[in-house]
Amino acid sequence: MSGHHISSAKFLWGIGIALFFLTFVTVAVTWIQIPEPWNIVVAIGIAVVKALLVVLFFMNLYWDSKFNSLLFIFSLIFFGLMIGITLLDTLFRNDPTPLF
């Protein structure tokens, strides 16, 4: 529960450079035309890694109270519920009855 973690300047720059590098990678992979579903997976995957770096080390969640992490995770779960359940409708509009 140390709310006052002080990162070294070197460490912060390291994270920053990693983020710059990943941004470059995510643009570079579009040049090599990955086939259909995988290009989205790669793009989102890189974005998730970048977001995690920011959340854990810039926002200090790695050293912070566990409850704050819990809050963050909960927001993602509820976003997942919102999109997941909405897709239950929008993806299956044309089926007259469910498959089972």
Partner: peptide
């Protein structure tokens, strides 16, 4: 309470799978 909102839309034209769930 977050999982049930679609019961307001049974006749709105959402998919029958969603209705069921």
């Amino acid at each position: 309470g977050f999982l049930v909102w679609g019961h307001h839309m049974f006749t709105a034209g959402q998919s029958s799978l969603a209705n069921l769930v």
